[in-house]
Design a protein around this nucleic acid. Structure first.
Lengths: 355, 355
DNA sequence: TTGTATGCGTTATCAT
DNA sequence: ATGATAACGCATACAA
């Protein structure tokens, strides 16, 4: 049993077993064979270890080894949000899973939050991230300058996502939006859609731009006509807008967020436009779990896997197996056919009845 | 900018600022005044610190016995469970909130999970908790010996919950189940209930025992008859069991978990027994958010506040403001009247009509 | 086969 | 006012 107040250290064991502290260390690190330490000595040492309940001191090991086995997680928003149903949670599940596998611990940087509620790496004076061996960063807030500085200081980190201006400086994992939108556009073309509309959020961020770029590219490649992309708030996606889609011969709409999907659903219902009968809809985002978004066709960002890969990449980076220019794409699950269907022929066109 | 590859240490700063490493340490630990170090020196040192992006080495500080601003969080189950709708999340929200307020960072101990999936502080070779200044522990698994050992080693930690055998050794925060069950029994008595049943889980744990003890105590104090407590799996809570309640003149049932509440709801429906018309039901647990448990009368454990208080207590403990015998009860929100109602008079009893 | 000496980064004591 | 120096617990190169 451990003595009150103080934990046993290697020298305690050494004294009890009648050997030197070095011998204890050798045995503990599994190098007894190569140092040809007799079994009798090993037995005595192991007995002493059990008797004293010795456990290695993690801080001392870290100090000695240069690593402390701590992986930082920095988000620009609270990790455990009050408005749960939480976007980050799924990433964190993956991050924790991988951390468990790798035998490292996670540091959640709460101290980086200032009085105003915003988080910043350098805002609080020192870069606390340095407490950890490296870090996984996520968050949609734009803090490119901080990322750039962090990279220029040689701090090892992996970004989940992509920032066009700075992300060449660091390893990142990112959903493969290009392939995803190729799949979506192909799916729509295959069931017979002739003209597509794209509705984005008013506030733009990098992942959204990636999706739009990919959409535009593949619509062109597949020679499907599109309307000019529109950037709307959910309130603007009303019945008038839906009527305009119909008037423009649009048969499928891609919406960038689930808020827009809700708005489009509601507006179409009000306008008497059946989804997916008269208008197919694809959501390019995944909503909170509480919404039954499985009733919509939507692409599915592999958030858990992104978290897992980010941790794996960070370990690779720390061990020198990859460099800062290592970037990875993870496949995005294509949409179901919930709100994708063959468009109803326009009333004016001739219809042929088979059978 | 910092040199690539190695993080700055105090001696780097000292060299850059043209002072000794000791001077740097003195300034960093806020003892510049008492050592009468000139402002000019301080300024030079601070400038060097900023320039090199210096951050104290956490492991070294811990080893030395100082603080590193890391608060550990150890749960005996995964923090981010796959089966989310997550019990722990709410605690963690509180823990993170308080950590932000206190300006400390959180270490989630993932490395304590062994190959078999179970978590143990000492099982994984080293006691990694020592990397942090102290820790908040939670989890229902029974690991009293580990808690005892941790306490005996003088490691500062706070437990969320209570373990009758060992919790006198450490500070803890715990829901005030005694008051909660006084409230529940009082509520039931006030609306006219005459006989209560208690259904607990087959697998017992400490919080559950606390609730049962409190229930028994207050039922006696308030002189309300009860049936012998039953410990059932949800499958055993069937229509037969409901029929038996009715036969025994039970008018209200306390169930210990939401699984049991679901079972009772279903069984009563099948048996044609109206809840709360013929049988009132109080759930002594809170289920996952996805279940609309607000439709049931249930007590509400203040999980977020428990998290917040635990962190606050840990800081108090570290600063010597409290000792290991400091224990705190947090109020539990009493149940609504969703499934508590005046019991319907039995068919055989005389009813008087006022009017 | 085992032991001695050293350094990891920090803080604190004691000289200067 | 500043600088050596030792100690925290561990791992390792080197000696014996």
């Amino acid at each position: 049993m451990a003595k009150e107040g103080r934990t046993a250290r290697q020298s305690d064991i050494a004294r009890l077993a009648g050997v030197s502290q070095t011998t204890v260390s050798i045995i503990l690190t599994g190098r007894a064979r190569e140092n040809s330490i007799p079994q009798s000595t090993q037995d005595r040492v192991m007995a002493a270890i059990r008797e004293l309940g010795y456990v290695p001191n993690a801080a001392a090991r870290s100090l000695r080894g240069g690593r402390n086995g701590l992986i930082g997680v920095h988000t620009y928003e609270a990790v455990f949000p009050v408005t749960s149903e939480d976007y980050y949670n799924e990433f964190l599940v993956g991050i924790e899973e991988k951390a468990v596998e790798m035998g490292v611990d996670l540091v959640l940087f709460a101290s980086t939050q200032g009085a105003d509620g915003t988080r910043s790496i350098y805002g609080s004076g020192a870069n606390r991230l340095r407490l950890a061996d490296g870090a996984v960063l996520l968050g949609v807030e734009r803090n490119d300058d901080e990322l750039e500085r962090l990279a220029s200081e040689g701090y090892p980190f992996v970004f989940i996502g992509r920032r066009d201006t700075v992300s060449s400086l660091m390893p990142y994992v990112v959903p493969d939006y290009d392939s995803a939108l190729r799949d979506v556009v192909t799916q729509l073309k295959d069931v017979g859609h002739g003209k597509l509309a794209y509705v984005g959020n008013r506030m733009r961020n990098n992942p959204q731009e990636d999706r739009l770029t990919a959409f535009t590219r593949h619509a062109e490649l597949l020679e499907i006509p599109t309307t000019t992309p529109q950037f709307l708030s959910p309130a603007d996606l009303d019945t008038d807008r839906v009527a305009q889609f119909i008037k423009d011969d649009v048969t499928a709409v891609l919406v960038e967020s689930w808020e827009l999907a809700v708005a489009l659903s509601d507006a179409a219902a009000s306008a008497g436009i059946a989804i997916p009968g008269s208008l197919s809809m694809v959501c390019l985002d995944i909503g909170p779990r509480s919404l039954a978004v499985d009733n919509w066709s939507h692409i599915q960002v592999p958030r858990r896997e992104l978290g897992r890969r980010a941790v794996a990449l960070l370990m690779d980076l720390l061990d020198g197996r990859i460099t800062n220019d290592h970037h990875e794409l993870l496949p995005v699950t294509p949409p179901s056919f919930a709100t994708i269907a063959r468009p109803r022929p326009a009333p004016t066109s001739a219809t042929r009845i088979d059978g």
